[in-house]
Design a protein around this nucleic acid. Structure first.
Lengths: 187, 187
DNA sequence: GCGCCCATGTAACTAGTTACATGATTCA
DNA sequence: TGAATCATGTAACTAGTTACATGGGCGC
């Protein structure tokens, strides 16, 4: 089974909401779906050109005076069909990788304080995510509450919130356990 | 900042527990840490040779009669130092990607029944994982309970369990919400 | 004047996947 | 007899990352 290029579909998905430039697509990923998707220019721009060649998007160059030129892409009917076809397909299992867990698993000879630092860092990161989620939730409810997509968007957000909360809880309890061990040894 | 090769450290980690062949390392990944790490031969074997060239592991060829030859690798002192150095380093943020969420996010024109199927599939997968976790937990507690690593291994397992449970809960509640919507429309 | 935002892209690289190739042993 | 497990590896490919290159506008 050949690996299918997900970036193609992520781009088609973003353009299915509204036309935009490569820059806009990247921005959308970073602002709205960053908690489960990411794209970078080095991959985005070439794939965008390829989609154009395949007839799934069209490009129109906009030149506003005193501003950098914009290549605005729109999804075509063929592009919508292709996206629809892919959305209907079952989800391919994607191997999850966690460097934190890898490090913990082999950390017998690492000072517990170092592990605790890593877990505290994780709590910081995840807490920051929780604040982002609150802001996104407001945005969806206030600005896009009427849209038929709103429920789906809130569902994906709910996933992010649950995972993030669970990660924070695990980190805190694991820190607790590590401290217990430490004091046991220390006495 | 250059991207560091995680496979190198995963291999060093596995060999830090005990010497083994490429096949053994792959097996360990698939059996014991598959819920947060994966390796495949196409990457594993070349990296193993590279580690040998760098003096971080040594190779000894075993030829048992009537069996395929085995290249058994052992970690060197230099390898242990390199592993230790890396384990102490802070965790690099790794972008999380979810095809399921990507599909849900853009699923306005997809029948709800198709989404529900995907969520049910997810519940199946995660439930199967939960059973694997139970088996691994038994193994750690019964066979490796005395090892100093046991607590760390149980901590990583605990992470897996929490995430998996949260994913199942989310899937079930999301199915519920989708069905509600459906019946509302239906009337 | 400095830094951030807008805006496009390429080149070089690396990590990782899949498919191919081979072949013995063991167990049902 | 056929499937699974043991066992090693290469070749071709693709996806994705990072660094480089360029440059105007805007606000503090």
């Amino acid at each position: 089974m050949p690996k299918i290029n997900k970036t193609r579909y992520a781009i088609l998905g973003v353009l299915s909401l509204k036309p935009g430039s490569g820059y806009d697509i990247k921005k959308f990923c970073d602002d709205s779906i960053f908690y489960f998707w990411n794209e970078n220019y080095g991959h985005l721009y070439p794939v965008l050109r390829q989609l154009e060649k395949d007839g799934l998007v069209t490009r129109s160059s906009e030149q506003t005076e005193g501003k950098p030129p914009r290549n605005v892409y729109s999804i075509t009917d063929q592009g919508r069909e292709e996206l629809h076809r892919w959305l209907m397909l079952p989800v391919e299992p994607y191997p999850f990788r966690s460097e934190l867990l890898l490090k913990m698993f082999f950390a017998v000879n690492i000072p517990r304080s170092n592990l605790i630092e890593k877990l505290e860092q994780k709590i910081q990161n995840e807490s920051s995510l929780m604040r982002d989620f609150a802001a996104i939730e407001d945005l969806i409810k206030n600005r896009f509450g009427g849209r038929p997509e709103a429920d789906l968007w809130l569902a994906t957000l709910d996933y992010g919130k649950r995972m993030t909360l669970a990660a924070i809880e695990w980190s805190e309890e694991t820190i607790g356990k590590l401290r217990e061990e430490k004091t046991k040894e220390g006495d």
